[in-house]
Design a protein around this nucleic acid. Structure first.
Lengths: 117, 117
DNA sequence: TAGTTAAATAACCAAGTGGTTAGGCATGAT
DNA sequence: ATCATGCCTAACCACTTGGTTATTTAACTA
């Protein structure tokens, strides 16, 4: 797998379980067991997901007796947002093309308001 | 692998080659050979990357004689941007915490400008 | 000391990834 | 009809992923 930061982040996000864990962590830190609760999945499976999130820098892990609380670190998501925003004009393109088409229609042959589509 | 649309999109983006292909396609449609040119990689390898992008709905493929031109479809990136934006307050949080700290410092014990840190 | 709880590690498995080479199939050119 | 081009599929490889169960480590508790 690619090991550059952006690729690690995207790879970490490419799993619904991990995205759900991040969503849960927006409400505050949680232990591994708390994070496991919503999922029909063994503890080690959740541990692996957490390791992927940690490698991507999306969570940090502390230590409190036998608990290892996880905390959200959303800073890598900033790069994700910025990368995606670079394509905004292209996902807007179809709508703009439709707007242009409608504007041109309006200018050249105004629709007959007596016969709306 | 997860097969929901957002996971497919994130997985497709988790590779620098595929992101470079998308960047190239912002300049307009291209054939597979044109897309392969910048990469030290066999044709089939690029074909596989294109299939991943196609499965994620990020490109569409046409047919022109023996060429199979690829075109960008950025609409899935809109969901990516919206998902990431949901975390904006959290990647801003550290800066806000710093601002708060500085503001509090300013109010309670104004820094000695003769002894800057 | 013995027992319980939280979490990690180890070992394993099926499936997927990212790459390769070899070969096949259309299409266009000679 | 033959050949070259563009691209695909097939088969293979080493490695990763997402899951499992069993075991181990670490810390608290009785």
């Amino acid at each position: 797998m690619a090991t550059d930061p952006l690729s690690l982040t995207f790879a970490a996000l490419a799993d619904p379980t991990r995205r759900a864990i991040l969503a849960r962590l927006t409400e505050g830190p949680a232990t591994v067991k708390e994070l496991s609760a919503p999922f029909d999945m063994s503890g080690p499976a959740v541990s692996k997901h957490l390791r992927v999130l940690e490698r991507a820098g999306l969570i940090t892990r502390g230590r409190d007796a036998q608990w290892r609380p996880c905390e959200l670190d959303a800073t890598p998501l900033r790069q994700v947002s910025e990368w995606a925003d670079g394509f905004r004009q292209f996902w807007d393109a179809s709508y703009r093309r439709l707007d242009d088409y409608l504007a041109q229609l309006q200018a050249n042959q105004p629709p007959d308001t007596d016969h709306p589509a």
